[in-house]
């Protein structure tokens, strides 16, 4: 499955960049995070709970920033498993500064889901993914557009 879109964020590009490429900050917007273990700036492990309708799983995800080109281009590869299911995700992100205070993020994700979640929930997957995407982005927007606290 491929998902893509554009998001306007009322925050300067370097702030958006540092938020999205910092495992500790960006995972605050991931769905239902159980734990985070940062190996190095490019690698981290995160455990999230996600699923489709009643089929929920605890996914243990290995995440790697395979490309980080400051100030605006990144590719992230995430691979994880829940009992009976597996997920693989490759996302690209490009940030463009609209002006000093606003940033446009162009993003695209290729997601492969295998196992029970795919078998049982295939027809609901698109809707569930849209919902998760919306939640994640509104969280990112909210956090970045909030006034900076020192």
């Amino acid at each position: 499955m491929r998902f893509e879109g554009t998001l306007d964020i009322a925050a300067p590009r370097d702030r958006v960049w540092s938020f999205l490429t910092d495992p500790k900050q960006v995972t605050t917007c991931a769905p239902d995070v159980q734990s985070l273990d940062v190996t190095d700036p490019r690698h981290f492990k995160v455990v999230v709970r996600a699923g489709v309708g009643p089929i929920k799983g605890t996914f243990s995800m290995n995440v790697e920033f395979t490309e980080l080109v400051e100030p605006g281009h990144a590719i992230v590869l995430a691979r994880g498993q829940a009992p009976g299911s597996a997920v693989e995700l490759r996302s690209t992100m490009d940030l463009a500064a609209l002006d000093g205070t606003r940033t446009t993020m162009k993003w695209a994700s290729d997601v492969t889901v295998s196992g029970m979640i795919q078998q049982v929930g295939a027809r609901l997957m698109q809707g569930a993914a849209d919902k998760i995407t919306q939640q994640v982005f509104s969280c990112i927007k909210a956090k970045l557009e909030a006034p900076v606290t020192a």
Binding site: T112, S114, G115, Q118, Q119, V120, A122
Partner: peptide, 14 residues
Amino acid sequence: YDDDGNIQGGNFMD
């Protein structure tokens, strides 16, 4: 099966 080899019809719903 889909192209990734996921069985489509692995339960009595499908």
